[in-house]
Nucleic acid binder design. Sequence first.
DNA 1: ATGTGC
Length: 466
Amino acid sequence: MFDKPLTVYNWKDYTLPHPDGYIELKTPDIGDVPVRLFLTPKLLEEVEQDVYKQIVNATRFPGVKLVAITPDVHVGYGVPVGSVILTDDTVAMGPVGYDIGCGMISARSAVEAEKATPKKRLEFNRAVMELVEMGAGGHSRTKLRYISETEFNKLVRGGADYYITKYGASFDRSRAERNRIPVDDNWQIPWGGRGRPERGLTQLGSLGGGNHFMELQRCVETDTLFVQIHTGSRGFGHGLATNYFELARSDKPGKVKHLDLGYFTPDSPNHRSYINAVAAGGNFAILNRLILFEQVATAFKQVFNAELELIYEISHNLVQKEWHPEFGEGWVHRKGATRAFPAGHPGLKGTKWENTGHPILIPGSNKDFSFILKPLEGAHKSGYSVNHGAGRRLSRGAAKQKLHQPKVNEEYRKAGIIVNDNGNIPLDESEACYKPAEEVVNAVVQAGLAEVQYRLLPLASLKGLD
DNA sequence: ATGTGC
């Protein structure tokens, strides 16, 4: 299924603009599966050659009905980061990714942006760094570092509902995507194995490394201070993903040659089990964002003496059962892709977003715009999804090699953006590593998927170091 | 992404 050799190399010659605002890809390698590229011609030109093989992979899981590619697409494990895969009943791990439930939280304040003087920005960063554990391998600095396995189980099953009942909530969470993804009572966490999800036991309430961040921003439209957080399920989600990749391999001996392309059809008991794992990993990520937000709000209060109000909280790495007007009920895998339900979508029924659509949170680099978008009716074209960020354009290795530390430090200093507290900008996460966010967001606006509501500019950024 | 082995 996945080892059929590719017949096409110059794949970009097999694209044609569709009147609905996306680019259609049709090659013998992808057969009849509709593949829609939500890219401008310029962004398409910049897409790496290796992405093609991964798009073909995406079409080859059993029962795939649609593959949508978002404008921030780049190479991932098995399938691209920035892909949306609709299947009938197959569920797959690669199309969710290792950081199960990874996503964004965004909040606003009534504080005028000018109150964030350079001194206050540094003060904010120091206050956050005092409270929040950042970086790869970090353990929570909250009391949740010391919870029992029993309590951990209750948390990843009960999500924010359980957390709020047990520990109380310092803010109104009713504006989040959800508090909890249901987990079956009989599902057990697959402790141990190669993945060792138990790594997550001490990590609830820690940022992590890589592209995870916390940021103080100025909203261009309101000229007030906003805050944004990007984090996921840490070692727990990573461990779950690893163990289910292994299970997929033992499920179908010899058939799954590429570990990254494992999947489960409903005839496997692991099918339901993996859906539960995604729910538990998703709940961990929801909790992680909730706890970090409480800490950031505490720091914000200390420095600006004001409250933060949630705008939205949403994951961009999940598989969920959804309805689609063209493809019916099915599993929607989003890997580095943000859900975009417009007004009237049945998935919003009974929520406060029913008549408006829910906010879409899209971060740019820490020296570029971030965006909050509003989904439009046309979002069905992409399986109700848009990009999840600007998209990497320079590898970490290349960034460390090519970029000059003093020069980058100077650029950020001139822009008045403080990263952490020592003036040294992490090169592999700096502006040059990412595509211009505006260009990427324009691609989804032009395709009629969403419209821009707020533009946010970074003032102070917090990054965990690898 | 993770945090360890290449």
